[in-house]
């Protein structure tokens, strides 16, 4: 456990001693600011019954941030260490492969959540300047951040897997970008298909990340999507673990 925490700390420090961490956060804040401006323009028109988080989500910057940030956050996790050789010193300490995978994943997820914190700031500012007290509904914020967290888990585990596959950070980033984008396109497809179109729609509907995240932003926590996200995360972490272990296969 101590080794696990030590590794998380090191991974997190890794983001902040280089420029990467700051650049990712700056880019994310820029996109959040953009969606904030778009939101304000929208709010100047007719009054809307939609909750503020859902309005935020509907500006689509959310997906841009998620799809672009995930590869950049995760690409270095394994690829860099394998490239520089520190992976060898790491794997010859008495620490298990599972601990390494979990620590790297957790660090990425923590950093990812830190990246989303400025969103709270945007919402706070909005609540200061409107006379609607319901805007800072904790339940709503909670479910939105739960959605962000769970979806983040999926994308971070995808990124871990991609990073473990390659020694090159560029290839790792490309891989996880294409994995993430495929997932996004699948969910886009799901939202475009007409309802009740046979089993295809049925299957695709489970990949409908866009609609599911919309639910979270609306304050609806659907167990089906929670289970789906958690199990996808576990699946990719398991695959990552297998890749890490594979050097020991004969």
């Amino acid at each position: 456990m101590r080794a696990y925490l030590t590794l998380i700390r090191r991974e997190l420090a890794g983001f902040f001693v280089s420029l990467t961490g700051y650049i990712i956060i700056a880019a994310a804040v820029f996109l959040m600011g953009l969606s904030f401006v778009m939101l304000l323009t929208k709010l100047q028109g007719d009054p809307t019954p939609l909750p503020i988080t859902q309005l935020f989500y509907s500006t689509d910057c959310f997906w841009l941030i998620l799809i672009l940030a995930a590869p950049v956050i995760t690409m270095r996790l394994f690829a860099l260490e394998r490239h520089t050789g520190t992976f060898e010193t790491l794997m010859t300490t008495p620490i298990s492969d599972l601990q390494v995978v979990l620590a790297k994943f957790s660090a990425a997820l923590i950093f990812y959540m830190l990246m989303w914190l400025p969103l709270l700031g945007c919402i706070f500012i909005l609540s200061r300047y409107t006379n609607n007290p319901g805007i800072m509904d904790t339940g709503l914020l909670g479910s939105t951040f739960l959605g962000i967290f769970l979806l983040g888990g999926v994308f971070m585990s995808l990124g871990c897997f991609a990073s473990a596959l390659s020694r090159s950070q560029i290839i790792a980033a490309m891989l996880s970008l294409s994995f993430g984008f495929t997932l996004f396109v699948l969910s886009f497809l799901a939202s475009q298909l007409p309802v009740n179109n046979g089993w295809q729609t049925e299957v695709l509907s489970h990949f409908a990340l866009i609609d599911q995240m919309n639910d979270f932003a609306r304050g609806v926590v659907d167990t089906r999507s929670v289970v789906f996200y958690v199990s996808t995360t576990v699946l990719f972490l398991f695959l990552t673990l297998r890749v890490v272990e594979s050097r020991r296969w004969n």
Binding site: R2, A3, T6, R10, G14, T84
Partner: peptide, 22 residues
């Protein structure tokens, strides 16, 4: 290992402490 891989961005004491904890 060969070529002595280290984490170049860390400070010496910090690195050794990190390794000792691991």
């Amino acid at each position: 290992p060969e070529n002595n891989p280290l984490h170049p961005e860390m400070r010496v004491r910090e690195y050794l402490k990190f390794r000792a904890r691991l």
